[in-house]
Simulated assay, not measured.
Amino acid sequence: MNEDLGEPRDYLKLHFLVFVWGFTGALGELIQLPAVEIVLFRSAIASVVLGWIVRKTWRVPAKRALAMLATGCLIGAHWVLFFLAVKVANVSVCMVGIATVSLWTALLEPLMIRHRKLRRMDLIFGVCVIAAVAVIFQSELQYAGGFLIAITAAFAAAVFSILNGRFAATTPHRVISLYEMVGACGFCAACLPLSAFYLSEGRGLDLVPSASDFGWLLVLAVVCTVYAYSEYVSLLKRLSVFTINFANNLEPVYGMILGAILFGDYQTLGVGFYVGATAIAILVLAHTGWSRRKRLPIG
């Protein structure tokens, strides 16, 4: 998709979804399971719920099904890296690293989509976000490992978002989500040995969540995945991948607020973090206004 074709309500829905996704980092902090197990349960629960919702319309051509399952594996990798960054650093730092997704999208879309040209303004906005992230990074060097993991997760997010833009044109959004959640679940199941030996801090596999963990997992799977992720896929029919991913840069702002309220992150974050986060919020609002304005008739 080259241009945004959405109505004002699509932009409002997009920003509401970004607000919902802002809770995912906090949920990753609240859930005591390792990153791989969190995503395994998240995608498994979402697969069951989505399977019931689309039980009469889930069939698609085999080639497309395989492509969506493969994309689901990439989504699983993105989520594992995301929650790993939360565990290694904290909610706010992880979600700021994710903000680089807009630059990755601006660079990768012309390479992955035929006839998609590199838009100068997209690149400028993306570079400005990177500058804001750099301000934060320099002020929080103790979290460098978490930043780098989150930036890698952002790269994966840009790739699967572009791929989803192709599926959205031909397949119902909940069917896409079903196949991708099954793929993510399969990816995490294959990664369980890695989690047991390297990512669980010596606890081994942790496949029996506590009652509180299971409750938060249900929120993560049903609200942040079945609802929010499916609606995100549906918006790809009307809004460009870059616009959606750029709006996602507000996640750090919501994550920062939640991290401050729930976990006291503000006690360990310096002035540079807040300067960069404020700049990101301003850039997202400016890009939303620019995207809408260029579609309006002049005069």
Score class of each variant (00 low, 15 high):
C224S: 12
W21E: 14
S102V: 02
L283E: 08
V222W: 05
F263W: 13
G259I: 10
D122W: 11
L148F: 11
V49T: 01
V36Q: 02
F246W: 07
V182D: 03
L81D: 07
I149Y: 11
I130N: 03
V101E: 04
L30D: 00
F82N: 03
D10R: 14
E29D: 15
E109Q: 13
V60Y: 06
H15R: 06
A190H: 04
L163E: 14
A150L: 07
L27Q: 07
L12W: 15
A144Y: 11
Y266R: 14
F214Y: 10
T268W: 13
I45W: 05
G97V: 06
A44G: 09
G28N: 10
A260W: 11
V241D: 11
S291M: 04
I38D: 03
A196H: 00
G126S: 04
S43C: 10
F246L: 06
T171H: 11
R120C: 14
V233G: 09
F197C: 05
Q138F: 14
L103W: 05
S200P: 14
S230P: 12
L118M: 13
F242T: 05
H115V: 04
L207P: 06
A150I: 06
V284S: 00
H15D: 09
L235H: 04
A189D: 00
M181Y: 07
A46R: 05
F160V: 01
C94D: 06
D213W: 02
V20P: 01
G276S: 10
A26K: 02
L285W: 12
A62M: 15
Y179A: 09
Y232I: 02
L84Q: 13
A153D: 08
V284E: 02
V223Y: 00
F125L: 00
A26F: 06
T171Y: 12
T278P: 00
S210N: 07
L27K: 02
T152A: 14
A158Q: 08
R293I: 01
E201A: 08
Y266G: 14
A196F: 01
I162F: 14
L84Y: 10
A85R: 13
T71F: 04
L33M: 03
W52C: 10
L69G: 05
R64N: 12
G145K: 12
G289V: 01
A150C: 03
A134S: 14
A89F: 09
V135E: 12
V88I: 09
I162N: 08
I176K: 09
S92R: 08
I176F: 01
S195A: 07
W52D: 01
G255D: 03
A228K: 06
N164Y: 07
F82S: 02
T152Q: 11
V91A: 00
V219K: 07
T152H: 05
N164L: 08
E109I: 04
A281N: 03
G259D: 09
E140R: 07
V129D: 00
L17R: 04
G72C: 06
L27V: 07
